[in-house]
Every structure is written in C-alpha cells, then in structure tokens.
Design a binder for these strands. Structure first.
Lengths: 144, 144
DNA sequence: ATCATTGCAAACACTTTGCATACGC
DNA sequence: GCGTATGCAAAGTGTTTGCAATGAT
C-alpha cells in the first residue's frame, strides 16, 4: 500500500490531514461508504471535521479520478476507491453491497458504440444475497 | 398499443385519470423522464395535479413492475417503461440518455452468482454521445 | 357507507453554496 | 503574505409523510 501523501500528490491533490484521513478511511473500508459513513468514521479522530469537507474532498477525489461515484439507487451515493473493472451486487433485503469480478463482453473505455464514445461503465446487479437467502421472510435488516 | 385502462388493470392497478395520464405520458415520452418532467408534461392537462400524485403513481407503477426505476447519477431518478433488457448510455456533456440494445453475457434474472440470486440488472455506460462528439469544446448543453 | 386516491403543506434527507477563519508554503 | 482548504450556517433539491378532502363502487 502506497504512502498516502505520495498517492495524493501523484493525483495532483495537495495532501491535507483531512484528505489523508479520508483516503485512509476509504482504503480501510472498501465497502463503498456513503459520505455520511466517512464522516461518522472520522469525526472522532478529527473532532472539528465538517460534512462540507467530506463532500468537498470526495467530489475532489472523484474529479481527479481517485474514486468512482456509485449511484446505487434511492439517493444512495457511494464512493469506491477500487478502480478495477468490477460489478456491484446489491441485496434488496439487507442493502449489503458486494463486489463481483465477472468477465463481461460489454463495451469498455475507449470503445465506440452507435457513434458514442464510451468512457465509463457501471454494472449493478440486484437480488437476494447469500446471507438473506437462507433466512425466512421477515423484515429488512440493517447492513453490518 | 394496448388500451391504457386494460393495461393498468392487468397489472392490478385501478385506473384513475391521473394514472392513465401518467402511463400515456410515459408511453409518448420513452426518454426516461424524471418525476418532475412527468409533472411538467401533465400539469397543463390536469391543472389540479400534484407532485405527490406523480411520486405516488410512479412508485406504485414501479412496485407493480410496470416501470423500472433508473438511477443515473447525481440524484437523477428516471422512470423507464421499457422493460426489455437493454443498456443505457448517458452523455456526460449534454445529459442525453440513449437506449442501447447490446447482447451481454452478464448474469440474468434467476441466475445465481457467488450464492446471490439475481433478480434485476442495470447497466449504465457513460461517455460522449455522437452529437456532442462532433462539436468542439465549449460548455454543456441542455438536453433536447 | 366504505375504502382508496388525491393533493396540499410540512417534514425530511442529502448535498451544495456563501463567506469568514485558519492553514501552509 | 497569499492562495488554498476548512467549516459553520443557510439555502437548495428531490422526495416522502400526515392528513383532510375528494372520488369511486
């Protein structure tokens, strides 16, 4: 795992303590956290931290290509540091999100389809995850 | 094109004038409108129409499997009456959304991957559309 | 008469903006 | 000291909720 400061600099991002901590949090929590989860995860370590800074930082990271912004439905904006091509699976019962590494014949970055240049792709599968599958009916459950 | 009342009834939806009009609007505007666009498109015909009813109706339609809810980023919830398996392409310059019919080897409804049961899938490609491609730099442009 | 749908107003959640303060080179 | 980052408070946006009025059978 590369040094955080160097990693930020290599993406043309001036390192600040907040930015370093957000990056560290994303690295330690690769489960596509929301902005709020990043905030909650850091507020104890940086008591003066503001949500504005989280949003600023995550948007800035996205702009610089460091994170990918995921829209997984229901105004659920999540941030993914993992830029490998992969697919997301979201459980409609518990809300858990899984990374799946499936080979896929969809057009890739740089391909042209119907005259459109593809620069990004996002695949979202939904269903019942292996954990919820085992359980009988009942209500939704909070994500772990 | 099937009769609207019958179509609603066949999906266990009691037809009301608002529901019929929303369905008609979706059929005449297959460009994945937002709730606001549906509202704007109907407010002249039904002056007493409320946004609440649009949201109620669209959510009800989604629940009954009549429309698919698309999350295309940036809190952009759109509604798609077209339930054929297809892929969406969104232009990052002008915001236009295109339907693409690509064959795709991704898991389908009913497949099981890593123990997860797939019930739905959504593929979003992003990039520069064929219209914007031709244009030189400059700013974004409103969707037609 | 009963039950479902509509629609207003208010509440809500999430995100962005304006601006003053603090920080780093 | 100057340019940038931070953080508070407020505004903005899109959506949902509570509830009274209306409509359908």
């Amino acid at each position: 795992m590369e040094n955080e400061k160097e990693f930020l600099r290599s993406h043309n991002i001036k390192p600040s303590i907040q930015r370093i901590m957000v990056l560290r949090f994303l690295r330690m929590n690769p489960l596509h956290p929301t902005a709020e989860e990043v905030y909650q995860g850091l507020i104890n370590e940086i008591p003066t931290l503001s949500r504005t800074t989280i949003y600023n930082t995550l948007n800035f990271f996205a702009e610089k290509g460091l994170v990918k912004v995921l829209n997984l439905g229901h105004n659920e904006t999540r941030y993914d540091l993992n830029t490998d091509e992969h697919v997301h699976f979201k459980c409609i019962k518990c809300g858990r999100i899984y990374d799946l590494y499936l080979s896929c014949n969809l057009p890739q970055k740089g391909d042209v389809v119907d005259g459109h240049i593809i620069t990004e792709r996002e695949v979202l599968l939904k269903g019942i995850c292996r954990i919820c599958k085992g359980k009988k009916g009942g209500d939704d459950e909070v994500q772990v």
